[in-house]
Design a protein around this nucleic acid. Structure first.
Lengths: 202, 202, 202, 202
DNA sequence: GATGAATGAGCGTTCATTCAT
DNA sequence: AATGAATGAACGCTCATTCAT
């Protein structure tokens, strides 16, 4: 009977939602398992039926939230491509990045939660559920293919862009230093274009 | 009599050394004050005569280690400038960065310790003790002045370079992913040159 | 199932009994939560499931012990009233006081514990559980009503009597100074009669 | 050389003053020896040259402050006797008590500090330094002698009065309950007169 | 005599984990 | 499957006391 499976899924989701709220409000170090369970209307012991410890729940959440952000960015990219056909490959990348930055800017809590916990290893393996479980590299590959351009060391290229975006936005959005987000964007996107050019063949 | 002052200095250094060892071995979250003291051959209470808590000792250490690295890089830059007079401004920056990367590469433990705790706020305020307490921006300014070039938004420029170096090296050195450090360097330095060019006036 | 509730009640009582023993033996300041728990054959953490801190347990105990004493005194008063109908109002008060003093005299440990912690605020609010939660003033009022006498400022009157009894007995019972309890009683009861007379109307 | 003796006396007084300030501000339990010393501009170790622990300093202070209050009351009594010759013995006692109450009412901090720590044993042994080290009983005896009256069990009589005053004033002044100090005074003084009468011979 | 660095036992409190129900 | 009472190790922190200077 699927009813039991459904109930278990609901419990797990309740724990994830509860933990996300507490982690972003008070930080993972100041959140106890007991609190996560109580905030999800469960007994402490029940937590252990679903997760080994709070770090297991954290890993789940980081991947889940990152997935949501990329999914949304991808949808928006498709919308833009549909409207303005002239967009170049570089514009598409910038569009993706911009959409991600906007989401982080509007929700700094998620930025703080994700940024410090999202290593390249996790990031590069994120599967985007609504896109047949493609990961980020797949999406890039697709865009590249459409553009008829050729690049060397595509993974390194993406890695450098992702890290540059992540690191600079973290500071600028959370500390408004050394410049505001709009000021950053101009030069950040110029730098991204330079990096893309640097890796392009011929 | 300075004997007592000397003894206090030694105790403080012993605590710093002990904490550095434990922080890098097991992480600050898994290190207790009690352990730091015991590892420094002291009673627990003695810790509190020198530091408020373990985060105070962490701040000390991050600044101290970062200072050491930049100091060494600056010395090496001067050596190189002394030998090959033809070095351009861009080459000087790359030289500095390369020297920092080499130190981190040889001592990944320090990289792990510093990188996650060195925000731009702390970084941009680090005073290099052996250079009349100049900070990093002062050093850049000096190099720029020698080069007779002009740049807009120098702070943003340095910020972007520092974050790009920091974030990419962290992954590459600690996880050897997505490429090795030598592979990274080539494209990283090319990207840095692009960024410098992007900010140059005329 | 009530079994679990019963077990919790037993744990709480064990903690109260343990704390009472230690408080009266060594004073509350020299008793640690750790000791209270160990003396009740529990782990330290269990204490916190039942009480916020040791002062919460103290408040419980003071009220509980004071309640027991007044309850017993009230019962004895009723016995005496039943036997000798002629007792006047003044005699009834003295009877109550005498019964309280006798209990304290037989159990100085309780006197030491209660007296220093029983402010008028707490005292005047003690509900006597076996008497439909009447408090002390209610009992006095009842006696007054039976006597057909009238008094002004009844609360002040009771306050003065209670404080006089409490303060003098504390010293006499615990230090046998400046006189013995029997010597005190004679003049104490005379003084109480004077005070009652002083507040009587007409 | 008396200079050294003088210096020691000053140190001791500084410690007493420091402790009095801290005890009345934060309570003895929340005051550490370290604080007492620092607040007296001394090193921690110096404390131990003058007092065994903080309770030794407390005993000193209670006696000292009580002494000051009685001294002042006695002076005022003599002033009043000098002016109005008709004052009876009872009036003299009331005058003394009233003066003590007024001091406590104006300085509740001292009341709180003294009242809970002043047992009859300490009280009855207080020597009033400015009166050839007479104690309280001596003063009473003197007043009695002047009055040509005779009393039985003088110590018990004084004890009852002192305890009644102490206990009722403590509550009324510190908690304004169950009545205000002026309301208390009227009936308190009437009660004292009753007690005096009760002990008078013939 | 005076200092204050050093000690370490002891405190209150938290919390991951277990397990009988 | 779900519970939550119980545990006890470990934490940060305080402070009376000692003692070399």
């Amino acid at each position: 009977m699927g009813k039991i499976e459904e109930k278990k899924r609901q419990k797990k989701e309740a724990l994830l939602a509860s933990a996300f709220q507490l982690f972003t409000e008070k930080g993972i170090d100041n959140t106890s398992i007991s609190e996560i369970a109580k905030n999800a209307n469960m007994a402490k012991g029940t937590f252990y039926l679903y997760f080994k410890d709070k770090y297991a729940i954290q890993d789940c959440l980081v991947a889940y939230e990152a997935n949501r952000i990329f999914e949304k960015a991808h949808i928006q990219l498709n919308n833009e491509l549909f409207q303005k056909v002239s967009d170049s490959f570089e514009d598409a990348i910038i569009c993706l990045v911009d959409c991600v930055i906007e989401q982080l800017n509007e929700n700094p809590v998620i930025l703080r939660f994700i940024a410090k916990n999202l290593s390249w290893g996790i990031f590069s393996n994120i599967r985007i559920s609504d896109l047949d479980n493609q990961n980020c590299m797949d999406i890039f590959d697709e865009l590249i293919q459409k553009s008829k351009k050729k690049f060397r060391q595509k993974e390194l290229m993406v890695f450098m862009i992702v890290e540059l975006v992540n690191a600079t936005c973290y500071n600028v959005i959370l500390n408004h230093s050394p410049v505001g987000i709009e000021d950053l964007k101009k030069d950040l996107y110029a730098a991204i274009r330079s990096i893309l050019e640097q890796f392009e063949l011929q």
